[in-house]
Structures are given as C-alpha cells and as structure tokens.
C-alpha cells in the first residue's frame, strides 16, 4: 500500500473516532472533525453543482459552437434573479419570480405524481376481496382494508371523532403507531448497518484484525 493510502486510512480512522467521541460528551476533537466535515462537504457540493449545472447544463449548451441553445439562458436569468435576495428589500422582490417558477413547475409535476402513484393506485390496490385464499391471506387482506380505512378516518377533519367514527379513528391511530414502530425498527437496522460499515473500516482496513 502506498504512503498516501496509509495516511488516508489513518486520517479517516482519526475522524471516525473523533466524531464517535461525541457519545461520551461534546469535546474539541468532535468540534474539529465536525467543522472539517461541514467545510469539505460544502466545498464538494459547490464544485459538483458548478461543473454539473453551470458548466455542463448552461455553458456547454448555451455556447455550443455548432448549435447554441437559447433555453439554458432562461434558467440562467432565473438563477441570477434568485441571487437578488442578498441585496436588500429594494430588489429582493425579483427573487419571487424564479421561486414562483420552481414552485409552479414542481407543483404541477408532483400533483400528478402523488395523485396517481400515492392516491389512485393505492386505493385500487386496497380494493381486494377479503375472504379468499389461506388464513394468512384473509388476515392480511382484512388488515390492509381496515388499516387504510381507519387511517383515513383518523385524518378526516370535517367530523368530530365521536361514537363509531371516533372508534374507527382510534383504530386508525393504533395502525399508525404499529407502522411507526416498524419504521423505527427499520431505522434502527439502518443505523446499525452504517455503524457496521465504519467498524468494518476500522477493524478491517485500518487495524487489519478482520480479513
């Protein structure tokens, strides 16, 4: 292994231990590691966005020697208008145009995205015969139908949660809590996996205690 790789591994190990030291308490090592992380990530994203957006998407297309495009100029002008927020109230209002463009465009795209994929098709998937198949299938179908219905009842704001309606809302919140528990469990697994990745680096690549 070259000396640069060795130095890199030791540096990465030092940063890992510095960040993890926060588990004990806030300390100078953690603060230094965090500041370096924040600074380098900001620098990395600046460089990425410069080359991928400003250079590749705007400059190469707008100044193409064979067929220069006009469309990138629209994005460029809107981007410049966005910067007017930095220059005081007199011209800061100009930044509302690009903001309106972004909000309008994404609202239009997302409206159909979420309406189709997250609403319509999910309702269609909930419409299933319940008492068919094995016992496990029946239980699964009943839970899906009941959970979806009661969850919708819980988030219905035009009626008080009283009587049968209130009972359904209560069942809905139970379903939600079970979902949150499952989600929490999955997240615990995810965090453990990330920790495993770091431990694999520390014990494998750095200390070489594992093959």
């Amino acid at each position: 292994m070259s000396w640069e790789q060795t130095f890199g591994i030791w540096l990465a190990a030092a940063f890992t231990l510095g960040i993890v030291s926060f588990l004990y308490r806030d300390n100078i090592f953690y603060k230094v590691c965090e500041a370096i992380f924040v600074g380098s990530s900001a620098g990395y994203w600046f460089v990425t966005y410069f080359w991928d957006n400003l250079y590749r998407k705007f400059y190469l297309q707008a100044f193409d020697p064979v067929s220069p495009h006009i469309a990138p100029w629209v994005g460029f002008i809107l981007g410049v208008l966005m910067l007017t927020r930095l220059f005081g109230a007199k011209i800061a209002w100009l930044s509302r145009w690009p903001l309106a463009f972004i909000i309008g465009a994404t609202a239009g795209v997302y409206m159909m995205f979420y309406f189709v994929s997250n609403a319509m098709l999910q309702i269609g998937a909930s419409i299933k015969p319940v008492f068919v198949g094995s016992f496990g299938d029946i239980v699964s179908n009943v839970l899906i139908a009941a959970g979806t219905f009661c969850g919708l009842v819980y988030f219905f704001f035009s009626k008080e949660h009283k009587g049968v309606f209130g009972g359904a809302a209560r069942v809905g919140i139970w379903f939600l809590m079970v979902t949150f528990g499952a989600s929490f469990g999955y997240t615990v697994m995810s965090r453990m996996s990330l920790m495993l990745g770091r431990l694999d680096f520390l014990f494998g690549d750095w200390l070489r205690l594992i093959s």
């Binding site: 994929s117 997250n118 098709l121 999910q122 269609g124 998937a125 899906i144 979902t179 499952a182 989600s183 999955y186 997240t187 697994m189 995810s190 453990m192 996996s193 495993l196």
Partner: peptide
C-alpha cells in the same frame, strides 16, 4: 433501499407498482 426508506416503499410493492424490494442489510 436503505432500511430507513424501505417502510415508505412497501405500499408500492403491495400495490404491484414495484416487482421486488430489498430492504437494508437484511
């Protein structure tokens, strides 16, 4: 998907929009 994201993707699997899903390390 990462395990954090997997619970949010299961509805798509159940609706048939996704054919299969591998969630997290497991």
């Amino acid at each position: 998907n990462t395990a954090v994201q997997a619970p949010m993707i299961y509805p798509y699997l159940q609706a048939g929009q996704l054919d299969g899903l591998m969630g997290g390390m497991a």
